[in-house]
Design a protein around this nucleic acid. Structure first.
Length: 476
DNA sequence: AAAAAAT
């Protein structure tokens, strides 16, 4: 990493910045975040992951970035969790900026963007744990996530970090048929932290099983998706309205790696209109969102069939040598087809998508996490947030496109997918399989959007070319 | 198109 990544370089005050702050500009303070350049910190979070973070804070609450966790007045038990269980030594850059904003009264809301693999989860989990009153046996912190897999993953982080705190927690997930009990029969939730999917959380609230009057902090993980995507949006807004009714001062945290300008404006408006508290913002320019540690490639192919051939003849062998691989496909159907084809050729792959039984989904993820499987085919179910450090190869079997206009790329999903590789600054590679002019056009648009050129693998039939690519990515 | 939810 070049040194100037650490200088807190301040981008020109762009339209982006002023557009975002809907507060009168006089009261908006634009902070450049200058962090003490402690290069020799052995933090498991990589400090170069968020080089330029811009923050907008309305009003006059001053925030000083935290260089050490001790500055955040955390409980001894929580500090122990951070040091002993998580292995942290000092706050990563995103933590040092966001944690003071989260933990300083009057507990303003926060819209926070940070790169993939930079440790957003640890930020909001720490926020939830530190704001819970251990003496009160009632729901005080609630976290909403788009998928079952993300709920489970976030809960694992919470349990680890909160190991010594005695804070109680529960997952709000649909249970499989075998263990089904009607909501009305279920006992009221007394756990202090709840992490769940929107459907189940709404159901619990509607059935008066989840009280919202003691909630101090509400987190939306993958917030751009949760608040802007139809289906999720309605559920999320319903949850917020219910909470604001009983806890109008509840702090709202919105976290994601992506907030495009439209969504950013929309999301700010919702938070502003529903909650009394002002909000702080933290964001990264889109040109800076591509991870330096992940090298992207494109492979041009003559027809759809050759995609399977490339996976079979090139990717599968290389994947085995390199680490773990996720192959993203657009539909469940093509997931199944690719799966069948590879199995027929004698390869070991597993496939995950939303229509599988919940227990199967859990099992497939578990096996992948344990390293029992090396190649996982997935729909966009796992595009966001899935954190498996051994994944260093991502294949876009299909490019991510907008659903009602398939000639337009879904830039956000693209970024999330490639972010499954290169967790916390690790090296990674991405192969985009392109077939025809349309794919090339979409790829070009993605490159333009992020202002990031993607190298072409010269020949899809050449073993050497693929090896060369992985060498270039630092994987061989 | 995919995701979440349960009937």
């Amino acid at each position: 990493m070049a040194d100037d990544d650490f200088t807190g370089k301040w981008p020109e005050e762009s339209d982006d910045v002023t557009e975002m702050s809907e507060e009168p500009s006089v009261s908006s303070i634009l902070h450049s975040v200058a962090i003490d350049d402690s290069r020799n910190v052995n933090n498991s979070l990589d400090d170069h992951a968020d080089s330029n973070i811009q923050t907008v804070t309305p009003g006059d609450t001053p925030y000083t970035s935290a260089v050490r966790f001790e500055q955040l007045s955390l409980s001894h038990e929580l500090l122990r969790g951070l040091y002993v269980e998580m292995g942290f030594e000092r706050p990563s850059k995103i933590q040092s900026v966001s944690l003071p904003m989260i933990l300083t009264p009057p507990y303003k809301n926060l819209i926070a963007q940070a790169k993939n693999g930079s440790g957003k989860t640890t930020c909001f989990v720490l926020g939830m744990l530190s704001r819970v009153d251990p003496k009160l046996d009632a729901p005080q912190a609630l976290c909403i996530c788009p998928t079952r897999e993300l709920v489970i993953q976030n809960m694992e982080v919470l349990l680890k970090m909160g190991k010594y705190t005695g804070v109680t927690s529960e997952m709000g997930l649909a249970v499989d048929k075998a263990n089904y009990i009607p909501v009305s029969k279920r006992a009221p939730v007394t756990a202090q932290v709840i992490i769940g999917t929107p459907g189940t959380i709404n159901k619990w609230i509607a059935a008066k099983k989840l009280g919202t009057s003691n909630l101090k902090i509400l987190v939306f993980d993958e917030a751009d998706h949760m608040l802007a995507e139809s289906g999720f949006k309605e559920d999320s807004v319903r949850i917020m309205k219910e909470i604001v009714k009983w806890s109008p001062r509840c702090q709202v945290l919105l976290f994601s790696a992506t907030f495009n300008d439209t969504v950013k404006a929309f999301v700010s408006k919702i938070v502003k209109s529903l909650f009394v508290q002002e909000y702080n913002q933290m964001f990264v320019m889109k040109e800076e969102l591509s991870l330096d540690s992940v090298t992207q490639f494109k492979v041009n192919l003559p027809n759809e069939l050759s995609k399977i051939m490339v996976i079979k003849d090139k990717i599968m062998d290389l994947a085995e040598k390199v680490g773990q691989t996720i192959i993203f496909v657009r539909t469940k159907k093509s997931a199944g087809m690719l799966h069948e084809a590879l199995v027929k050729y004698g390869y070991q792959v597993t496939t995950i998508h939303g229509t599988l039984a919940r227990e199967d989904r859990d099992k497939i993820v578990k096996e992948f996490r344990e390293g029992l499987t090396h190649v996982l085919i997935s729909t966009d179910l796992l595009a966001r947030g899935f954190d498996q450090s051994k994944v260093n190869l991502v294949v876009n079997y299909d490019l991510p496109v907008i659903h009602d206009n398939t000639s337009e790329p879904d830039n956000e999903v693209y970024l999330h997918r490639i972010g499954r590789a290169g967790r916390f600054g690790r090296k990674g590679a991405v192969f985009n399989l392109l077939c025809g002019d349309k794919d090339n056009m979409i790829m070009k648009k993605i490159e333009t959007y992020f202002k990031h050129y993607v190298t072409e693998v010269p020949s899809f039939t050449s073993d050497e070319d693929f090896k060369e690519a992985l060498k270039k990515a630092g994987l061989m």
